[in-house]
Structures are given as structure tokens and as C-alpha cells.
Design a protein around this nucleic acid. Structure first.
Lengths: 254, 254
DNA sequence: TCAATGCGTATGTCCGGACAATCGAACCAG
DNA sequence: CTGGTTCGATTGTCCGGACATACGCATTGA
């Protein structure tokens, strides 16, 4: 009896374009991911061994391994020595990434809108100065925004940014998200430190978000760093818990 | 003028043990990580080119690249073509992983304690059945626990587990965390889907955690999967926000 | 003075091969 | 029937080399 091994070459039309500037391993990993996504590779099915796959595609084994490994890192595949590589069952689709609330809402089909409440230079307070790594009292940008979805207020966003990084245009801030502006300004985001908590709304917070005073609020503080280690943003956000929660998937680091 | 490039071979005593069963690339990456951790490799410093490093250590370039790549994936290093590999400035230390509250508290120096309130088999409700992928009404384990730190209640944990996976001993549940028990039973955790939110405490919730009714609570729901895609745990937790928040770092996927 | 060009250097991609470690199943012995 | 052993299959690790590509800097030219 032969095992129910999928033959990727015939069942899905795999094949690489050597004239393309896109790396071969990336072409392959994208095709495999697409095949998984559309169900051509069913969960639990084996992927056929690497050497044979490499031979069929006219690639070397390291290239095929690199493609497979990238999908393993994404959590879509699992490798087992002596067994093979198989598609993970289900549900791992969007591992946690450094996300922008604006992009999240847009991807969810909500139509995000932003009102800029404050956009000025202020002397850095103790907390913002410590987070951004600048001297207390030195100038930093302060941006306060209200984020809406379907006309309902979702979150109040208060952010601090160091000067000289990008010019914060109020119109642009209302048209898109902060992260998109930073990327467009050539800032390469690298990592962030986040803290998610909850507390009761103060009178001012409650009024901004249209909640009663003392209502529970979901809070998030975040400091974002670029790849040189510079802090490029510090934000303290409050969310209406009935309208927003932090949903994500995460993988076990191995 | 020579550039201020660190010479890893002399300044840090790098060297691999070929008789060890530990993979060479792993030995190297661990040594590099340790060097970064203790400050021997200062943030921003270059790491010297791969080929030379490989030659000095008596390794091949792919092996050295594999070691470096693993640290890049961890966010400790950044590579730039034509420039070199440099140590990231600070602060990226513990990227988000699938964590156990028990382990988190223990690592933070708090002394966690657990009281098991409920540990029985119950017919699965709609929510638990959907999360675990079992038929509604079929038997599942139900575990309710109170988690303390320094004698103060921190969280109320309600978990559902499929039967036949492991035997849930109340004494063991009070001595350690659920994840540790599952790992000990041979379950290989793979991924989880989480949702973090907030809401006002009901009378029962408030009483359990020693909070006033209506107090804001931090909530987390999580479904955990093993590497075959089976759901192995579903939990609904509530935390006292004054005592606990979700802190983590995350990297930009590239 | 300033912009365009060229060059060195480092990482990015890819190849082909070799051996080791591990898993699962078939096989054999008690 | 049961338990241990052997063996094939598959991934894990490692090597040595080759060429492509992008960045930074110095040089050159307008």
C-alpha cells in the first residue's frame, strides 16, 4: 500500500521562474503557502521528501529546505525527522506582528477615521523622556488622536515622537496611520515593547470615548524601536473594550 | 584609519567543540548571545565579516550564517548587505512566546500559589465545544483555579481540556502550571489563539478576586493547539488589572 | 562645490555532496 | 502474542565553492 502522499508537482502546479529576480526559495515558499491557503495541500498531508522535490523542480536541496523552513517558522508546516514534512492542521494564520490599529481596522473591513485633537511640540515629561531616551524637558512631538470605526469612537491615542524624524502633518495623520507615515519617511521599524492592561475611565477619558465615568477601559502602552535601537515612538492608548480587543496568534518558540 | 570592528576571536573567547553532540551553529549562536548579554559585544558594534569569522573558527560559512541567522530571527542582530552584521541597540530581550502565567510569576520572583476550585468532567458547553473541536455535550475536563502571588489573588483561571490527553491531578495542579503538566504528559504545544480584552466584574467574579462589583477586569481567552492541529486547551481567564498586565516585546516580521 | 561614477566589501542566493540522527514499520525471536 | 532488533526513509547538520546584489566611500568629472 502506498501512503497518501500528495505529489506537489502534479496536483499543484509548482514551478519556478529562474529569470525572475525573486529568489527561488521565496517563489517556492509563496507557492506552497498559496497551495495551503486554498486547500490544495490539506492539513496533515505529507509534503513528499525534500530531495525528490528538489529534483522535480530542478532546484538544490538547500534551496528547497530554505523555502520549507520559512513556512515552518511561520507555523504552517511541521517537520519530523524520519517522517516528513506535513501541513499543520488549521487556524494558524496571522501570527502576532507589530500592527497598526489603523491597518487592523482597515483589514477587518471597518472604515477607520481619525480626528487629530493635538499635534504640537511640547517639553518631554518624565515618562515620555524615559521611553524615548531623550532629556526631560527637551522638545518632542505630542499627537493626540481619536480613532473611529463606522462613526463610533474606538480608541484614544496619545503618542510622543522624537523631533527630526518626520514632519507630522495633521491632514496626513487623519488620512492614514502613524506607522505608515513612519515607514514612508524611511524609518525601518524593528521591535516594540508593549504592555496591555485595564483600568477605570477617568472623567476626561470617559467623555472623550463616550463612556460613563468609571467604565472599564483597555489600555496599551508601547515603545517602538528602529533597527538601530533608537526609540522612534511612545504611545499610551485607551480602547473601549466593547469595541476592541487584542486578538492574535502566537507560536511556540523552539 | 581602521574601523572600530570588534575581533570576536580574541576579545571574546569563541570556539566550538567538535566532539560535542550540540550542533556547531548552535554552539556559536549561544556563545554570541552570551557575549551580547554580558556586554562583550556592545550594541551597534559590527561583528566582522562572515567569511573571516568562519575561517578563524574553522567552520564553513553556511554554518556561521546559520548561527547568525538564528540571532537575527531573535532580533538581537541586524544584517545589512554591503555593511555587515551589527548588534541591535538594547532592549529586545524576551520576544512574545506562549507563556504560562505560573512560569511568568515564578520568573518575576513572585511566588505563585494555586487553589483548585473545580476539577471535574462536565458536558461541553457550546463555547468550549467549538473551541476544542468536540461535540457539544461530550465530556471535557473543567478546571477552575485561583492564582495567587504573595498571598494576593491575581487571576481566576477557567480551563477546558479534552479527555484522554492527560490525567489532571488536583495536587499537581496546585503545585505547578497547566502548561508544564501538559508538556510533561508529552504534549508538544505549537500555537495558540489569544484574545485580550476588558470588562466590568460581575458579582461572582468580584467576590472571587476580592474586588468591588463593577471593577474593571482584564480578560484573556486562549485556545492552544499542539503540532497536529488538535486543540488541547481552552481557557477563559480574568485578571486584576492592578496586579497584572500583559507585557511583551515583539519583532517586525520581515 | 557638487553630483555622477566606479570600486571594494559584505551579505544574499544557490549549488552539489556527504554523513549523522531519528522515526516508524516490518521482521524475527522468545 | 509479545518484545526487541533491524532497516529503510527522511530530515538534521556540515562542508566548500560560485556568482549576484547592494551599500559606503573615494575618485572623478562638470
Amino acid at each position: 500500500m502506498s501512503k497518501p502522499v500528495v505529489d506537489p508537482t502534479v496536483s499543484l502546479d509548482l514551478g519556478v521562474d529562474r529569470s525572475s529576480p525573486v529568489p527561488l526559495y521565496f517563489q517556492l515558499s509563496q507557492q506552497l503557502e498559496a497551495a495551503i491557503e486554498r486547500g490544495a495541500l490539506t492539513p496533515g498531508s505529507l509534503l513528499g521528501n525534500e530531495i525528490e522535490l528538489a529534483g522535480r523542480l530542478g532546484l538544490s536541496r538547500p534551496t528547497v529546505r530554505q523555502a520549507i523552513q520559512s513556512l515552518v517558522d511561520k507555523g504552517l508546516l511541521v517537520r519530523r525527522r524520519g517522517v516528513g514534512t506535513q501541513v499543520v492542521h488549521s487556524k494558524v494564520r496571522r501570527p502576532l506582528e507589530l500592527s497598526s490599529l489603523y491597518d487592523d481596522l482597515e483589514a477587518a473591513g471597518q472604515r477607520p477615521a481619525t480626528t487629530v485633537l493635538v499635534n504640537t511640540l511640547v517639553p518631554a515629561g518624565a515618562e515620555a523622556a524615559a521611553a524615548l531616551g531623550v532629556a526631560e524637558g527637551s522638545d518632542v512631538h505630542r499627537v493626540e488622536r481619536l480613532r473611529f470605526a463606522h462613526g463610533e469612537p474606538i480608541a484614544y491615542l496619545c503618542n510622543f515622537l522624537p523631533t527630526g524624524l518626520l514632519d507630522l502633518d495633521t491632514a496626513q495623520l487623519e488620512a492614514t496611520g502613524l506607522y505608515r507615515l513612519m515607514r514612508a519617511a524611511g524609518v525601518t521599524l524593528h521591535s516594540a515593547r508593549q504592555s496591555i492592561g485595564a483600568r477605570a475611565a477617568t472623567a476626561a477619558e470617559a467623555e472623550r470615548l463616550g463612556e460613563p465615568e468609571g467604565a472599564p477601559l483597555l489600555t496599551m502602552e508601547r515603545t517602538t524601536f528602529d533597527d538601530t535601537g533608537r526609540a522612534v515612538e511612545f504611545g499610551a492608548h485607551t480602547y473601549r473594550p466593547a469595541r476592541y480587543s487584542f486578538d492574535f496568534q502566537l507560536l511556540v518558540r523552539s
